[in-house]
């Protein structure tokens, strides 16, 4: 069987067959499930939703999230990941209405109550922007958490969309123990546009051409 000939010596070493045909199929969940990723850029800033990673476990999700969402930039003080299925999502409101106006006391009257646990609450203030962490509160069910969130966090500015999840469902990498993970960020200047100055070189070149 003939192998693929490439300009790239690494590809030649792979001994790839020259012909493959076009059929190719993947099995379901070959790429795993998704985790939502929240990043805290600085200690005094709220966690913000940044996107997803596909991973087989939350530990792997953290490793991918760290590479994907915190390798650039000047600083990072924490990353949270959570299985997408564990986040409860409210509907979006229209016309600057506040989602909290739709949460009434009835919501807790029929809810099944369990032991009190902590919930994390995220707000979206404008379409197109990211969800930001608003705070943590205790409740005996998601419904009660929503009701408590209304009492705690409803304010003058309308909230368009709410995400709520149990604190225990997150993997949180943050605080003193993990601070050194992001220590080297300021050393990676070669990833910044500012590290590539060339104006002087162009000026000198032009001057030489004209002389």
């Amino acid at each position: 069987m003939s192998t693929l000939k490439s300009l790239d010596p690494r590809i030649n070493r792979l001994n790839i067959p020259a012909e493959f045909g076009t059929s190719f199929s993947k099995t379901e969940k070959d790429q795993f499930i998704t985790y939502e990723v929240f990043v805290q850029p600085k200690v005094d800033k709220p966690y913000q939703h940044e996107g997803i990673v596909h991973a087989p476990s939350e530990e792997m999700a953290f490793l991918f999230a760290k590479e994907q969402f915190s390798r650039r930039g000047i600083s990072c003080s924490g990353v949270w990941v959570i299985n997408t299925s564990n986040v409860k999502v409210s509907p979006f409101t229209e016309n600057q209405e506040d989602i909290y106006d739709y949460i009434h006391q009835e919501i807790i009257e029929e809810a099944n109550l369990n032991d009190k646990v902590s919930y994390e609450v995220f707000h979206l203030m404008k379409r197109g922007k990211q969800h930001k962490h608003e705070g943590q509160l205790e409740a005996r069910s998601y419904e009660e958490a929503l009701w408590n969130a209304k009492n705690e966090y409803a304010g003058e500015k309308p909230v368009m969309n709410l995400w709520i999840a149990k604190a225990e469902d997150f993997l949180k990498i943050e605080g003193e123990d993990f601070a050194d993970i992001w220590d080297t960020l300021p050393q990676k200047k070669y990833r910044d546009a500012i590290d590539y100055k060339a104006t002087e070189k162009i000026k000198k070149f032009k001057a030489e051409q004209n002389s």
Partner: peptide, 28 residues
Amino acid sequence: RTAEERGAWVRRALAKNSEDQEYTAPLA
């Protein structure tokens, strides 16, 4: 394709304990 095929065993090994997890489309 080669990267995909030759990496498949790694993904299979990693997926061992997560096969019953439910996929939900990303939220945003």
